[in-house]
Structure formats: structure tokens, C-alpha cells
């Protein structure tokens, strides 16, 4: 039979190859340009208002602050980073666990949802002093705990929704072949939930940073960028405070794009080809 495919997808022409091609590509140039514009605007606003250093720092004050405290930035930046990552890993483990339980069992979903929502609704800033008192002296543990508590909720919800909204036909296809529940989970439920999981993980990354810094600022124990921020505050060192904020933003961006890279590897199929 003469058969004509309904549409043929032609292979795309190769893009500008090599490192130069990458560095001049839109994906690199556009965000850098945006950052430059942002810094210029910031500088302009501070300059136009004639704000002095002790009221508002401008971008041009920051290099001096970094140069003066670079060692502290490295040490404390690392402290913030590893505690955030450990909190996040815990959030992933516990969040996926809760998500699976709620995704597969209606009863558990009905039972746990209000509890989790209530827990999530409590401002974590109020939990910080409780945790700090409860585990007094365990700085690393406390910080990780807050980072975990603030960031596991989106993961639990997205995994449970991903699993519970699995179309019954997907199950039927495998069940009609005699597949076990484990096989169905491994072959279908797990991969199908990955895009939702990574979506939630992107939210959780930034939340985990908030959690870490809450603990570092509210209950200062001399560790992490939060503590550095707090010392800047105590000394009215505005450039230092702003330098910490920018460092935090930088770490947040790095971690976020690590998640994006992981998403591309494990759930790249969910991304639609443009055009």
C-alpha cells in the first residue's frame, strides 16, 4: 500500500558548534545581559537617590566587601551550601516517601493531607527558636532540620498527585499482561512522576536555602552565610550584608541549575521540542 506519513520531522540543521558557539548562544548571552542590566539599574537608583553606604549599598561597593572577607565567604558559603544540600536530600527522601504513601492509598491521603498542610502553614521562623532550644548546641543538625522541614512539602504533594493521577489505562495495559504492582511502579508510575518531582524540587531548592538561613540568622552560632549577614548587620556594614545576599543568590542559582541539569538527564523526555 502506498503509505504517506502524516508528517515527517526533518532533522534540524546543526547549530553553531564548539565552545565559541556556546558562549555566544542566546542561552548564555541573554541571562548575562539581564544580570548586567539589573546591576546597572541598582547602581543608578542608589546614585540618583544619593543614598549613603550606611543606608543602602550599591553594586560598586560589593567587590571591596568580597575582597576584604573572601576567606569568610568561602568557609561560610560552604557551610551554608552543604547544610542546605543535606536538608534537601532529606526532604527528597521523606517527601517521596510521604508522596508514595499518599499517592497509592486514598485512606492515607485523606488522613495525612490536613496534617501536612497544617504543618506547612506554620511559619518556620517560629519553629526556629523551638528547634534551637530543643537541640541546643547541635548547630548543624538544627540548620539541616529547618532546611528539611521547609522544603519537603512541595515534593510530597507533587509525588502524591503524580501517582494518584496516573491514568487507569496505563495500569490496565500492564496489569492485563500480568505485571506485578512493583513492575507497574517501576515501569510506569516512577518515570511518569519524574517531571512533577523535578518541578517541586526546583521550588524546594530555594525553600531549603531560606530554611538554612533562617536558622543561621535567627539563632546565630557563627556558621554559614546567615551568620556573616548577621555580623554585617551588627556592625552596620551594609556592603557586607548585600554581598552576602548576592552570594546567597549565587548559590541558589547554582543549585537550581544543578537540578535543571538532573531534570534534563532523567526527565528530558517531558520537555517539548520547540516548533
Amino acid at each position: 500500500m502506498a503509505y504517506v506519513p502524516e508528517h515527517m520531522t526533518a532533522d534540524k540543521p546543526p547549530k553553531g558548534a564548539g565552545i565559541v558557539g556556546f558562549l555566544t548562544s542566546r542561552a548564555v548571552v541573554a541571562p548575562i545581559a539581564a544580570v548586567v542590566v539589573f546591576l546597572l539599574l541598582w547602581e543608578l537608583i542608589v546614585w540618583a537617590n544619593g543614598w549613603p553606604d550606611y543606608l543602602m549599598a550599591s553594586p560598586s561597593d560589593l567587590p571591596a566587601a568580597y575582597a576584604q572577607y573572601w576567606e569568610l565567604f568561602l568557609i561560610m558559603g560552604w557551610q551554608t551550601l552543604w547544610r542546605t544540600i543535606v536538608g534537601l536530600v532529606l526532604a527528597v527522601i521523606v517527601g517521596v516517601g510521604f508522596g508514595m504513601v499518599m499517592g497509592f492509598s486514598r485512606t492515607m491521603r485523606d488522613a495525612l493531607y490536613p496534617l501536612l498542610v497544617g504543618f506547612n502553614a506554620i511559619p518556620k521562623a517560629t519553629v526556629v527558636p523551638i528547634v534551637a532550644l530543643l537541640f541546643v548546641g547541635a548547630h548543624d543538625f538544627n540548620t539541616i532540620l529547618i532546611a528539611f522541614m521547609i522544603s519537603f512539602f512541595p515534593i510530597a504533594v507533587s509525588v502524591s498527585i503524580g501517582l494518584s493521577t496516573l491514568e487507569p489505562e496505563y495500569r490496565d495495559i500492564l496489569r492485563s499482561l500480568g505485571a506485578s504492582q512493583t513492575t507497574i511502579f517501576r515501569k510506569i508510575a516512577l518515570p511518569k512522576t519524574l517531571p512533577e518531582f523535578f518541578g517541586a524540587l526546583k521550588v524546594s531548592v530555594t525553600l531549603a536555602f531560606i530554611g538554612t538561613n533562617l536558622m543561621e540568622i535567627v539563632s546565630p552560632h557563627g556558621r554559614g552565610l546567615g551568620a556573616l549577614f548577621d555580623s554585617g548587620k551588627t556592625n552596620s556594614n551594609y556592603p557586607l550584608m548585600f554581598a552576602v545576599l548576592i552570594a546567597l543568590a549565587f548559590l541558589g542559582i547554582v543549585l537550581y541549575y544543578i537540578v535543571v541539569a538532573l531534570e534534563k538527564i532523567f526527565a528530558g523526555w517531558a520537555e517539548r521540542q520547540p516548533g
Binding site: 490496565d172 492485563s176 515501569k187 511518569k192 526527565a267 517531558a270
Partner: peptide
């Protein structure tokens, strides 16, 4: 079985989608 909704697994290629039952049976 085939349904109105083709329920192909989006993360697999067409070839791997067709092979799926052979991984189970």
C-alpha cells in the same frame, strides 16, 4: 489491549514502547 487513548509512555522511544509487553510477558 488498545484504547482510545494510546497511552504510550512518553519517556520511551516508539520502539521501546512497542517492546514493553515483551519485558513483562
Amino acid at each position: 489491549m488498545a484504547f482510545q487513548n494510546p497511552v504510550l509512555l512518553e519517556w520511551r522511544t516508539i520502539l521501546d514502547n512497542v517492546i514493553l509487553p515483551l519485558e513483562i510477558v
